[in-house]
Write a protein that binds this DNA or RNA. Structure first.
Lengths: 248, 248
DNA sequence: CGTCCTCTTGACGGCTTTCAATAAAAGTGG
DNA sequence: CCACTTTTATTGAAAGCCGTCAAGAGGACG
């Protein structure tokens, strides 16, 4: 049993399976977790930074700000998610990272990618896979924002959050605490906060969801998924192309 | 001088610089180019396929179709672009690839990624970098579709195409042949073809662009870029983290 | 207990879509 | 090379979805 742990190792182990040796490599590299309060900006775009993070606890989102001052939320990140990869290969951060809840994140050292690519090809390939899965998720979101009605876009965000939380926490079935403001949902869907409010109310009136306090409950998940044109891709990862694990 | 060539080697050489040995590896792997006619669907989403392609000549675009029948164009791909990576790590293709012009593409073998990760870490890292650059580009597009006006979105697509073509072909300064229909521009921007037409006409009336036949000319590129809130990221690739090239 | 943030709701306006009809262009077959 | 068909571009009118503005209510927090 290892004294230290690694968020990244846990994540990769679940998705792909790790050997003890691979796990040891990651444990050795990972730095101690860092805490942030709800609303805190972990990193701002255009900052010089090639750090990588793994979410250990809580939610955050990545976003970009336009010159008009409008904000586009690109993606929500949950425990186990690898964050900041896109900025890691550019000179400066492309995305702002903001904590939705109190969070705990593990920072990965600057040289992580170099080390993995040079010495641990199978681990590098896993990270590549996760990055490509994110790419596909972003494509789904673009299609949602570009082609769907306001109601469908809101439904799509809710469905995505529910499905992704459920993968992480088996005890979640049909409801979750949503720490987002309606304004933030608007920034993710390309709508105003006011209109998000109306769409949520419509979904409640139609019996698709229910709310109490800050909890959202799915009453008719089939209809929600249909409304949102939602595709769950969480089970589609193809691991057959990965290089074989090293022989001890 | 090599008898055979490799589109991928050319691309990586321009972006990162290749050793002769690295080039030889890629030349050995690359298959002979394949031709497609304008409008031809190279690959359809949900098809079982983990092929990778490099564009040698012409344009294509990747897109997804929603159940409503609407289509979201995700990205245009120009010569040298690596296409299909996102689908390569999933069991099935996530995106449809459609030729905008007559095109010539090089197919890369199924095992390419595995070979590169296992045996040529620096090449794998380069491909990872390109993939992440695409990720950032997709984020920019999402912000455009989610937050900007119709005119700005159209301007943004035109600016993106111009800038990217100019990197590939130094002879291009302010005009290019646009093989896209206004409907296709609409599918990329989340607008209807009719409204794209109106926005293009507005841009012409304002003296920002001019058209003749299927050619678009930028009359006031500064204003176009400003309208589009366009950020040229083509020079932002950070190559310092790449593993060192192998010693011969 | 007061302040700030978020949610809620209504009225109004405008941007974009939809529908429709024509013209122009491109592709096809003779 | 010309007639015919299909696709694309263009334009107007009307409708609708969503944004803007505004005001009040409810909660969290100090």
């Amino acid at each position: 049993m290892t004294a230290r742990e690694s968020c990244l190792a846990d994540r990769l182990d679940i998705a792909f399976g790790l050997t003890a040796k691979e796990r040891a490599v990651l444990v050795a590299l990972e730095q101690s977790p860092r805490q942030c309060r709800r609303g805190h900006v972990v990193r701002r775009e255009r900052e010089r930074s090639d750090d990588l993070y793994i979410v250990r606890n809580g939610w955050l989102f990545s976003s970009v700000i336009l010159v008009s001052g409008k904000r586009q939320i690109l993606r929500f990140h949950f425990p186990g998610d690898l964050v900041g990869l896109g900025s890691g290969v550019l000179g400066e951060a492309a995305e702002t990272l903001t904590a939705v809840t109190d969070i705990e994140m593990c920072t990965l050292p600057r040289g992580l990618l170099r080390t993995l690519f040079a010495e641990h090809p199978r681990l590098a390939a896993m990270i590549f896979s996760l990055a490509q899965a994110d790419h596909v998720a972003m494509a789904d979101r673009l299609a949602s924002v570009g082609q769907m009605s306001a109601k469908a876009r809101v439904a799509s965000v809710l469905a995505d959050i529910l499905v992704r939380l459920r993968v992480l926490d088996k005890s979640i079935t049909d409801s979750f605490h949503i720490g987002l403001t309606q304004e933030e949902i608007g920034d993710a869907t390309g709508l105003t906060g006011v209109h998000v409010n109306r769409m949520i109310r419509t979904l409640v009136e139609e019996g698709v969801i229910a709310r109490s306090n800050s909890h959202v409950r799915m009453l008719d998940e089939a209809r929600l998924v249909q409304l949102a044109n939602y595709v769950d891709r969480s089970k589609e990862l193809d691991t057959s192309w990965l290089p074989p694990p090293p022989r001890d």
